[in-house]
Write a protein that binds this DNA or RNA. Structure first.
Lengths: 210, 210
DNA sequence: TAGATTGTTAATCGATTAACAATC
DNA sequence: TAGATTGTTAATCGATTAACAATC
């Protein structure tokens, strides 16, 4: 079963946003919505919404629109949420700690199973219910517990070492928060999140104000 | 004045990445680079690099390429870094705290001048050298100190209230980390950063692995 | 049935890439 | 000067929007 019509990254990027809005609608006890109504709420075109959704199947019904709850669940399915992806965090600094305590984490179907650091002063301390483990043990830990995702929140100086270590292990994806790109390597998917990039863009946008 | 050929958001989004790579090159004492070399490092086309840069001016030299340091500085200029944008953080939870202690912050030209929360248990405590201030005093604070940027790191339930409060004040930009979009409103630029969106995209990308 | 709204095809628009003349 | 590489125009590609027949 092929289904090999490649779906553009632009479409994928928009899915989490649809998911968020539909989640909110559901909470407001709205059961159905048309692409037109949703387009107004989200400030995109109705056409785009219909095109995007039809990449994955016909979720709507003519004359009715979309059922909020079932579309929400379908998009969750497409995104592969609710799989309880086992996840580790590498780096127990301020950001790593914040991420470890991040509520949306588990809510979106990511299960934190370990957090690692190389600092003697952090190893053995607790972040929430998780004890910070020695980074030296990460390879063994991965072999045993088989996490799918590693979140990287270390200074960029340490990134090379960490990726070398992780590339020897069987993980599927890396969410990288360090101030340097990690490139998708030997079958490991990487998503780079650059907080300072967003700050810089904001800086650009406000240049001409006033 | 003039210079009204609208620059696409796609180009703007890439500038911080150029900036990062050029910064690294500079640190490695590389003084010149051609679009071809840079394109290989960054995994984009040389054509795109030249097109992007020429939106802002001719920074290169035929037969030579680009001077790393001066291009780095030019892009910093374009992005409006080195202005020492005065910045406040709203929300002193885990994420707010991590952002307050975030080194790249000051390094990219953002000057943290205040951090606010509504929780009695947090007000008066210190994050680094910053005392957490009562959110009730933010309006007065803004009037007096004139920050340009507000970083929002509060639970989504509190976002409405906060934006209402901020929209009464004269700020230029909002960097929003909460799990809900803030729409660009009455002249305030907004940059929404959704960490869980990135996680969801990663989840999608790893779906078919193995 | 009539009305509404989808799914989908076709048209438009914009972004990326290729090509090359200009020039250091 | 010859070689390299830019700046820039033209060609291609892909993404967005518009339109409408299908259908609930």
């Amino acid at each position: 079963m092929g289904d090999t019509k490649k779906i553009s990254l632009e479409v994928i990027k928009r899915l989490p946003r649809y998911y968020r809005y539909l989640g909110e609608l559901g909470k407001s006890n709205i059961t159905r919505i048309s692409s037109k109504e949703l387009s107004e709420k989200m400030d995109v075109t109705a056409s785009q919404i219909r095109q995007d959704l039809n990449c994955f199947g016909g979720f709507g019904q003519q004359g009715y629109g979309y059922n909020v709850e079932s579309l929400y669940n379908s998009i969750g399915e497409i995104l592969g949420l609710n799989h309880g992806h086992k996840t580790i965090i590498v780096g127990a600094g301020n950001l790593g700690k914040a991420l470890a305590l991040y509520k949306s984490f588990e809510k979106r179907g990511f299960k934190l199973i370990g957090i690692f650091d190389n600092s003697k002063s952090k190893i053995g301390t607790f972040i929430g219910r998780h004890e910070v483990l020695d980074i030296c043990t990460v390879e063994e830990f991965i072999k045993k517990n088989e996490p799918e995702i590693a979140v990287i929140a270390v200074p960029k100086e340490a990134v090379g070492e960490i990726t070398a270590l992780l590339s020897k292990c069987k993980i599927k994806g890396i969410l990288n928060f360090s101030y340097t790109d990690i490139s998708t390597l030997n079958g490991v998917e990487v998503e780079n999140v650059h907080i300072s990039d967003s700050l810089m863009m904001l800086s650009y946008k406000i240049k001409d104000i006033e």
